[in-house]
Design a protein around this nucleic acid. Structure first.
Lengths: 387, 387
DNA sequence: GCTTTTTGTGCGGGACCCGGACAAACCGGC
DNA sequence: GCCGGTTTGTCCGGGTCCCGCACAAAAAGC
């Protein structure tokens, strides 16, 4: 990586200073860039010239306001160009595959969701996902060779070293490296991570926690997982399996969990568990969507069950917040849409965490809903793809 | 901070590359520096010349081996000089004040511990600490104006924004900013942090977790606290009160804790609590030291009580490890010396954490014992003091 | 129209880094 | 003991990069 002379790297560094400033604060004049970078006018002019020549930046036609209220030559604004090519996000969840194609700034171009059972056969699912990427690109009018990278969401922890799925969660995927397999099918770099981490990436980048640096994203759905962002960076842990909030033991001699332990939090609050607790009281099959609608209509049973689940989750999160003292807690996943659940999490945190810690914490609902994983996958692809 | 031209900063960056390489791998030849930095021989020579002129580096007299087994001109080794001046570490604990004076590389010069009751009066304690710093410096033969900075350990969480102590723990220190107060008394920069964070810094820098990047340091003593190092950096949290492991609630309707909640882990496993549980079975006053000696002699009661405490702590740590997936867990504090307690923590983690997480974790005893906070305070001072 | 103000661009100078040439210091073989 | 081989460190010329200054361009205000 560190090739080229030190002087070239200096110029590269200064170019990056300009592009990151433009990415953060939008189009601005060269004079603004001078103030932002501390470089001289001459240097900025020269660097911007390079960037225009290489196509990374364009001069916009509309000139900005001639400085606020002042006289003087009106500035020429420069703006980042959207790099050529597209990326795709692939969300492999329990019961569906969702694919989004987006430009290199994360702007969505097309998206499609197929409901299929992904658990039994990893290879067939990846075949399907690869086909979807090609078809969705096609539908968006994107030439086949414009695809630059793919981000991928897998519904289970990934071991960082082997890039394989953890044992015991998805039997049909054992010993499979999803990123490598999809790369073989599509011929572009593929980066994989789990749903909670990508949800965190999405909400921090484009959702409820935009701009915060210490964030816990908790996904409450068929499973329970956390994505932990500290100092602005996703914390994956030594072996890449950080965030396993669902497998905190809360009942000493509780149900056996799919992970092998017993009494895990996930056995109490997974979507399927909550639905089966509620089912006997209702006619017809009770889906999560229907339960959320009932909750909104004031159904006491649903509210009670969701609230109890929130208390259990909030109890575990309070301990984690005591240790990490985060700024924002984003509640996502299908059940994150439930106000009862979120309110219960908030009160459990207030009750069980240190007062100062609880006071510093904001608890908010995820803004991206079901799309969070695929948005995070697109973010991951865009973050990792080179220039 | 970013003053001077971009070109000057480039040279500064390259100088730093050399000094950090020397700091990490010890004395080496200019040719080694060329290989390590990727800069040209000419440039390295020039930079080393600057560093020698400015006194940051010296040419050692003993020439290194003339390349291993090869012929050729033997290299001239260059080494970092220890910067002029000293720093002090101040550890204010329950019942003692410990002061260490060290050189700018962390090498201890002198140390002293006074047993005093620090709780009732913060101002008087800081007077005493300032006097100790002057006296210990004097005993080490250090001129008074050689002191460059002080690191300070306070036995309670510090609010990052106000630099004041959290409410309710130390009544005699309320509304006091310890760093500012000690700065006023000594006239040099003072940096304060709590005992768990500084213990973590010490063990990661000079102790049991040297070289690891994801570390949890747990201090088991009169209180229970954790210092969390992630990605090689100490995680302090949004308001600086991360690591409050002692105030995880473990008994729903337990004892009221000094923090205001009830059933906190600390009410079960603090040193004083364990001693009062053990006391009735023994003649004479039972100190922690005596209990540790009894444990070593095979006393079943002490072993059982320490082991039970370890199980409770390990239970809480297992949850945290599930979320953070760290590499090393360092057990420090006065009770960290107990093998029964450490073994119990290990088995609780194995039992309650995810198998993959537990397998990736090393549980080790702290190497610095009671000196950990003061060593960490010295590290903090040396890390923060400028050139 | 003229001044003032702000923006953007050439030009010369200086700082920095690199490649190649050269001296120094040691080893091994004859 | 001498000579080639090897590695290390320094000197020199050239090229790249950034900065300060001067100057042109484009408005607003008198």
């Amino acid at each position: 990586m560190p090739h080229g002379s030190s002087l070239e790297r200096l110029r590269e560094t200064n170019r990056r200073a300009i592009t990151t400033l433009l990415a953060a604060d939008g189009p601005m004049s060269r004079a603004d860039l001078v103030r932002g970078t501390g470089l001289s006018r001459t240097t900025v002019s020269s660097l911007v010239g390079d960037l225009i020549a290489s196509g990374h930046v364009v001069e916009t036609t509309d000139r900005g306001r001639p400085h606020k209220g002042g006289s003087g030559r009106p500035p020429l604004l420069v703006a980042l160009t959207v790099p050529a090519g597209v990326v795709a996000g692939v969300d492999v969840g329990h019961g569906h595959v969702r694919v989004a194609v987006a430009d290199r700034r994360g702007g969505a171009l097309a998206e499609r969701t197929d409901g299929i059972d992904v658990d039994p056969d990893g290879a067939a699912t990846l075949d399907h996902a690869a086909r979807m990427v090609r078809e969705v690109s096609d539908a968006a009018g994107v030439p086949a060779d414009d695809l630059r990278a793919v981000g991928m969401c897998v519904p289970a922890p990934l071991d960082r070293r082997s890039a394989r799925l953890g044992t015991g969660i998805l039997p049909g995927w054992r010993e499979l490296s999803p990123a490598e397999e999809l790369h073989r099918r599509l011929g572009v770099p593929v980066f994989a991570d789990n749903d909670a981490n990508l949800g965190a990436l999405a909400e921090v980048g484009h959702g409820a926690a935009k701009g915060s640096t210490d964030v816990i994203y908790v996904k409450v759905a068929s499973g329970l997982g956390a994505g932990i962002v500290l100092g602005g960076r996703l914390h994956r842990g030594t072996t890449g399996i950080a965030g396993e909030l669902g497998h905190v033991q809360v009942v000493e001699d509780g149900q056996v969990c799919r992970c092998g332990n017993r009494g895990c939090l996930e056995t109490l609050v997974s979507a399927s568990r909550l639905m089966s607790v509620l089912q006997p009281a209702y006619d017809g099959e009770l889906s999560v969507e229907r339960a959320l609608a009932l909750e909104e209509d004031g159904d006491a049973g649903v509210r009670r069950v969701f609230s109890d689940a929130g208390l259990a989750i909030g109890r575990a999160l309070a301990d984690l917040c005591n240790s990490l003292n985060p700024e924002v807690l984003v509640v996502g996943g299908s059940l994150g849409a439930s106000p009862s659940l979120r309110d219960a999490i908030r009160s459990a945190v207030d009750r069980y965490a240190q007062p100062d810690t609880a006071a510093a914490l904001r608890v908010v609902a995820g803004q991206l809903g079901k799309r969070a994983p695929v948005v995070g996958a697109v973010s991951l692809a865009n973050a990792r793809v080179g220039v």
